[in-house]
């Protein structure tokens, strides 16, 4: 560490001259940041798609289309269908099965229909919420990881100071600067992750509410059909 004024303070210089643990920490943080941004964008697309499909299906459903026809089209496009369409499909399939069996009372049929819809609903929510916990983890842990790198770097730079007779700020400043980069990286990874996590969690809640109310309304419609 030669403390001259003209020392190159560029980013690569700082990272390259850092000690090995600090470099490892930085690598980890870069990977975490990349991953979290990847998931941020993926989830963004997924949630947007889910909301769009939800809107479309609700439109069609409440237009008064024949439920049988709707079920046929949902079963045909099962691989590309949206979550709400899947819930509808599962419920209607179960309901039709019970109708075909003679001697089944309406209460039992409705119960099993509701169970089928709930199962699909839970599966769909699980799919939509996958990877959200990763964002939460990055958001809460990466500042600490960055802080660890910083503390390690500062420790080293002070230890180097102990051998010098006349201690100046120039002896420690580069070490501290390179150590602080780790904290900056940790924050850079954490802040977007936390923001995205909060946003997506609230989007999930809203979607779940929509699905649940749809299930209730669907049960009513089917019950009326069974009674009539």
């Amino acid at each position: 560490m030669s403390p001259t004024v003209s020392q190159d303070m560029s980013l690569f210089q700082l990272v390259g001259s850092a000690s090995l643990p600090v470099q490892l920490v930085m690598l980890l943080l870069v990977i975490a940041s990349l991953m979290s941004w990847w998931y941020i964008f993926r989830k963004l697309f997924v949630i947007r798609e889910a909301e769009r499909q939800c809107d479309e299906f609700e439109n069609v459903f409440w237009k008064g289309t024949d439920l049988n026809a709707l079920f046929q089209s949902a079963a045909a496009s099962r691989h590309t269908a949206g979550s709400m369409e899947r819930i509808f499909e599962a419920g209607f399939r179960e309901f039709m099965k019970h109708r075909r069996q003679p001697g089944m009372d309406t209460g039992t049929a409705m119960d099993s229909t509701r169970r089928a819809m709930r199962a699909t609903y839970q599966r769909e929510m699980d799919r939509l919420e996958s990877h959200l916990s990763f964002l939460a983890t990055v958001g809460s842990v990466s500042p600490y990881v960055g802080l660890f790198g910083t503390v390690w770097g500062i420790m080293n730079s002070f230890r180097g100071l102990s051998n010098v007779a006349q201690a100046t700020i120039a002896h420690v400043a580069p070490g501290i600067a390179e150590a602080l980069i780790a904290t900056a990286m940790g924050l850079f990874a954490a802040i977007p992750a936390v923001i995205a996590y909060n946003r997506y969690a609230s989007s999930m809640d809203r979607l779940a509410t929509r699905f649940e109310s749809f299930m209730e309304e669907m049960s009513n419609v089917l019950q009326r059909q069974a009674g009539g």
Partner: peptide, 22 residues
């Protein structure tokens, strides 16, 4: 009704965007 995992939309664009941000 579905034992397979549906392909998520936009995996590659998401990766490209993440790298771009960095």
């Amino acid at each position: 009704l579905r034992k397979f995992v549906r392909p998520e939309p936009g995996r590659v664009p998401a990766a490209v965007l993440a790298v771009l941000v960095h």
